[in-house]
Design a protein around this nucleic acid. Structure first.
Lengths: 195, 195
DNA sequence: ACGTGCATGTAAAGCGTTACATGATTAC
DNA sequence: GTAATCATGTAACGCTTTACATGCACGT
């Protein structure tokens, strides 16, 4: 699929960058909500892209000695990136999610443990959602289509809707675990042991 | 992380199964919304789990000759699975999504192409959502906590909320692309070329 | 007889994480 | 001086997909 390749091309197309810059985008920025890679994957990919003539770099000096390679996209790079960008793809059937997998097996654990796991996720997801909602405040009005901010805004909205749905699901699940386990035979036994 | 290992343990714990059965769960069932694997990964994993004493199998004959290995979970397998199930994990920071990555770079493509890509995804996601909503109709009432159906129901609800949020995001994005590009300079040039 | 589904495996290549490795710059 | 950040790489290992490979069972 070579997705990382195109993610890097796109980032460098937005703005010339070093490998370190790219790693930071994947770690801290909006982008990290739907793609990421470590520097150990990025540096070899930058090299490959340069060898293929899709990127080129200039060496800059920061301070006295330290060199950094600032990559720019080439005309061929732009062309290949645009071709990828316009490809209409079938949707990914599976978004792997370990927590959902655990919940699939929820009946194998005592309902108190299920509730604890759900609450822990809920705290984390809510924190994430709050952070995203704060980021949204930077946008007082809709950015112009042709600016990079427009893409930033679209995917930020996507992340917010996604996290909100996750939070809704966790809260609903917590309610259902409470409701369903109250009446269950298994739980009556558990309660009998506790009281 | 060895997630596949535990997914398989859990499935076999729910119900004795062959490798083929497991592959089918990952391909067609609710489970496929948040985890999957191909038979080429499943068969070696089943072998490893058997060698480690977490699974065991009996050979059954279907028809005259064809053998199939029906796996059951062992007591040690149950113990290890439960230990995994109760582990409280930090949330995955990134759910990789190629389509969102494309939209991050939306300003690099003409807005007509962006709209076309969004519409294509929308059709696919709506179809998926409809399928999930249909599946939900099977549940006339909340399954009992201790039944496998309870987990099925929880993750089905999760999938529905997730897909609904995706659909909402796509529709909102389509509106924003229309709105923002109407007034943009770039788009006026595009229109000038068309008319 | 033929096609679809059942059933099980291996091999190669690609993708991704963790760990190994090194050194400069900057702010306190 | 020292800690955090900037900066670039490689190696080993694990996970995942695609392709290669084989054969039986069942319905029409």
């Amino acid at each position: 699929m070579r997705t990382l390749r195109y993610a890097i091309l796109g980032l460098v197309d937005r703005k010339p960058a070093t490998g370190y810059d790219i790693a930071r985008e994947f770690k801290e920025k909006e982008l990290s909500n739907f793609w990421s890679a470590r520097h150990s994957q990025i540096y070899p990919e930058l090299r490959k892209l340069t060898e293929e003539g899709l990127l080129e770099y200039e060496v800059e000096i920061s301070g006295e000695i330290q060199e950094k390679k600032v990559y720019r996209i080439t005309r061929r790079g732009k062309r290949e990136f645009l071709a990828w960008l316009l490809r209409d793809e079938v949707m990914q059937p599976t978004f792997k999610d370990r927590f959902r997998l655990r919940m699939y097996f929820v009946s194998r654990m005592p309902s108190a443990d299920a509730a604890a796991l759900l609450k822990s996720q809920l705290v984390q997801r809510k924190r994430k959602l709050d952070f995203l909602l704060e980021s949204q405040e930077k946008y007082q009005e809709l950015p112009e289509y042709s600016s990079d901010q427009f893409g930033d805004y679209l995917v930020l909205r996507g992340a917010i809707l996604r996290e909100q749905a996750y939070v809704d699901w966790l809260e609903e699940s917590l309610r259902l675990v409470g409701k369903s386990s109250q009446s269950s035979v298994m739980e009556q036994k558990e309660n009998a042991l506790v009281h």
